[in-house]
């Protein structure tokens, strides 16, 4: 169990907010930290890693105090039992895959554990490759197992899949899930991707403007309305096109553009870029597998 209670001033380009978080995170599961950019997700992760120091607060991991500003305790990252996976992989470019893993493990590292992890992500054939010879997905697999080599108590993932293309992201998401299931390591996943959060995490912390606005199961946040017979989509207004007495509104949801007919009243305060919710009453929603 991880107890967090911290405050930190966030200086962003357009505004200053205060990151102020008090929460506990259960062990052996994946907890997602979800929210828009600038909400403080990555800063929270870096505070846990010891890479950023908060002005005030305490962090306690499995009964051990990592940070307590009141008692002037702040363990450096080297003394915290963590594995950190960066968005941009951060593999050491001058070392081969094997050297990256061995450097992480240290001189007395467990060689057989490295082999086990390599097998887990099916990368045994690439041990002599330099990071630049690998694809993005392969690099992130190595970055993931490099973070696990030292058997940390806490795995911190900072948008680990966001630099990958769709197909690779799906593949790695599944792998990540299985690895976590197998190792049962307490994991914090920073993400702004709903599907990622929904499929991976069993616990969710929703941050906005530096504050926790929701904590619980992802299904509670995203799935509440979906079990009723109302089909609901959220999207972004692309255009409002006048069409005689009425209007056509183009809304982007995911990768689809949906055209909606709207009256004068509906479009009164609507502007391009606004977030909107589309819903229909549907009594029989059909499901059809797509080709490919």
């Amino acid at each position: 169990m991880i107890r967090i209670n911290i405050t930190k001033q966030l200086r962003l380009a357009h505004e200053n907010t205060q990151l102020s978080i008090g929460t506990t995170i259960p062990s052996n599961t994946i907890t997602a930290i979800y929210g828009p950019s600038g909400a403080g997700k990555t800063t929270l992760l870096k505070i846990l890693a010891g890479l950023v120091q908060p002005e005030q607060g305490a962090v306690e991991v499995n009964g051990r105090i990592w940070l307590d500003t009141a008692r002037r305790v702040c363990l450096p990252p080297q003394q915290r039992s963590i594995g950190f996976v960066f968005q941009e992989y951060a593999l050491f470019p001058h070392m081969t895959v094997q050297q990256n893993l061995q450097f992480a493990a240290g001189k007395n590292g467990d060689k057989s554990y490295i082999d086990k992890l390599l097998h887990l992500v099916k990368m045994e054939a690439f041990i002599h490759a330099k990071p630049s010879q690998l694809s993005g997905g392969q690099q992130q697999r190595i970055a993931l197992i490099r973070a696990l080599v030292r058997k940390p108590q806490l795995l911190l993932l900072d948008e680990p899949l966001s630099a990958l293309d769709d197909a690779m992201r799906h593949e790695l998401r599944t792998e990540l899930y299985h690895i976590q299931q197998q190792l049962q390591i307490t994991t914090l996943l920073v993400s702004h991707d709903i599907s990622e959060v929904y499929t991976l995490a069993s616990n969710l912390i929703h941050l906005e403007h530096g504050k926790v606005v929701f904590q619980g199961e992802p299904q509670q946040l995203f799935g509440a309305a979906s079990l009723s017979s109302t089909l609901q989509l959220t999207g972004e207004v692309l255009q409002v096109i006048p069409d005689g007495a009425i209007y056509t509104v183009e809304v982007l949801t995911g990768k689809n553009i949906i055209r909606v007919t709207a009256g004068e009243h509906d479009i009164a305060k609507l502007q391009t870029g606004d977030k909107v919710c589309l819903f229909v009453k549907a009594y029989t929603i059909a499901l059809k597998k797509m080709n490919g």
């Binding site: 890693a49 990252p77 594995g83 950190f84 960066f86 951060a90 973070a147 080599v149």
Partner: peptide, 15 residues
Amino acid sequence: LPLSLRHASYTLGKS
């Protein structure tokens, strides 16, 4: 050099 290179090394326990 990207900051993450240093940070990655620190989180791997390197001084």
